[in-house]
Amino acid sequence: MERVKQLASHLIPGSSKGLAAVEKKNPDDVVITMAIRSPLCKARKGGFKDTKSEELLLEMFKQSVARSSIDPGLIGDITVGTVLIPGAAYVARAASLAAGIPEQVPVQVVNRFCSSGLMAVTDIANKIRAGQIDIGLAVGVESMTDHPDDGWKPQSELLAGHDIAKDCGMPMGWTSENVAGDFNITREEMDEFAALSFQRAEAAQKAGRFEEETVPFTAFVKDPATGQRTTKVITKDDGIRYGTTKESLLKIRAAFPQWNPSRTTGGNASQITDGAAAVLLMRRSKAEELGLKVIGKHVVTAVTGVPPRVMGVGPLYAIPMALEMTGLTKDEVDLYEVNEAFASQALYCVKQLGLDGEKVNVNGGAIALGHPLDESTLL
């Protein structure tokens, strides 16, 4: 906790804190008036496998314009979070123009790997809070079919020979095994956690709980014989495995037998996925002026670094930082969304923080729904 206080000390807002302050409505609040996403589809074999990443982004922009209830010319800035798209800044600018967003609306790209979508939201929120803009659009997009994550290897011995820096080039599966081994997260615990993710996602999909946030997406289908592409409309996530149990997951072999303790599998790790999402933010006074419904309020973002060899444990430190900055207790938070890159790291964070499991990822997480790097953290 002392480390959390040190990390958060320079970020704590000067205004009053606590639940009452968070719930209070002020004209200068940064609020959300639209939050939508595409269906999440399995990379290489799901609904978007023949749709290019720039086409996903174009469709996301089109959907944002259609569902925002504002003139797109009012948007002061757009930030796109993406990890793998080559020349992402060119693609983002071109896609926004092709979607009918006026040329005077600027676009930029951010990349903080799995939190890139959240960083897009944070960037727009901070610009509104600072008075630079009144309205902004945050977008996340990733096609892991179009651009698989091939990792990175240092080219210089100055990095390759550094004890910590060299770990940045190691595969994420290795980091999952490090978390499982270092912190004694068992295979049975991991599979139990993963099974619950699938079961909750299945229940949520069957109950229609994703329908309000998920918009129908135009995708492409390639004829394997002719190579010609036609369009189709995708309406729901296709990666949720119905009927998943801990017992069925325990039968899956280790995905990384080369690294001890070899507890990570294709069943208790996140799926690689294609998808996109968008969030429209603005000053509360502007939302009221435009007659828009406020569906959420951005209060604070907390970020911190952790050793690369256990990169997934960031929420263990970022969540207490956010609580410290807002003056909230962990029990005053109704719902938590913790990234499920791997069951090992998500479960470790939940256990160490002492979170109520009934409040965590109540509609399933990335293990069940998929993890298109940036976008899976945006909504």
Rank of each mutant, 00 (worst) to 15 (best):
R3Y: 10
K5I: 13
K5W: 09
H10T: 13
K24M: 10
N26W: 15
T33N: 03
A35W: 05
P39H: 05
K42H: 08
K49V: 04
D50Y: 09
K52L: 14
K52I: 07
S64D: 06
R67Y: 14
I70E: 07
G81D: 08
I85T: 13
A89S: 15
A94C: 11
A95I: 02
A99Q: 07
V107R: 01
Q108L: 07
F113R: 12
A120P: 07
D123F: 03
A125K: 02
I128H: 01
R129W: 09
G131E: 09
Q132E: 13
I133Y: 04
D134E: 15
V139R: 00
V139S: 03
E142Y: 08
G151R: 07
W152F: 12
P154Y: 03
Q155I: 11
A160V: 05
H162M: 03
D163I: 09
A165G: 03
D167H: 14
D167W: 14
C168E: 11
C168M: 12
M170F: 15
P171I: 04
P171Q: 09
G173P: 09
E177P: 11
V179Q: 00
A180Q: 00
N184V: 11
T186Y: 13
E189C: 04
D191K: 02
A201M: 04
A203S: 14
Q205G: 03
R209C: 05
F210I: 06
E211L: 14
P216S: 11
F217T: 05
V221D: 10
V221Y: 14
G227A: 11
R229N: 09
K232E: 11
K236I: 04
D237T: 01
D238M: 09
D238N: 12
Y242A: 13
T245E: 05
A254D: 06
A254T: 05
F256Y: 15
P261V: 00
R263G: 03
T265K: 05
G266P: 08
A269Q: 01
S270V: 04
A276L: 02
R284T: 10
R284E: 02
L290V: 03
G296E: 09
H298W: 15
H298N: 14
V306D: 06
R309G: 05
G312N: 02
G312K: 00
L316A: 11
P320H: 08
M321I: 13
E324H: 10
T326A: 04
V333H: 02
D334T: 15
L335H: 08
L335E: 08
Q345S: 11
L347S: 01
Y348E: 01
V350P: 00
K351M: 09
L355C: 06
D356Q: 12
D356K: 10
G357V: 15
E358V: 10
V362K: 04
G365L: 03
A366Q: 00
A366Y: 01
A368E: 05
A368D: 02
L369K: 06
H371P: 02
L373I: 15
L373S: 06
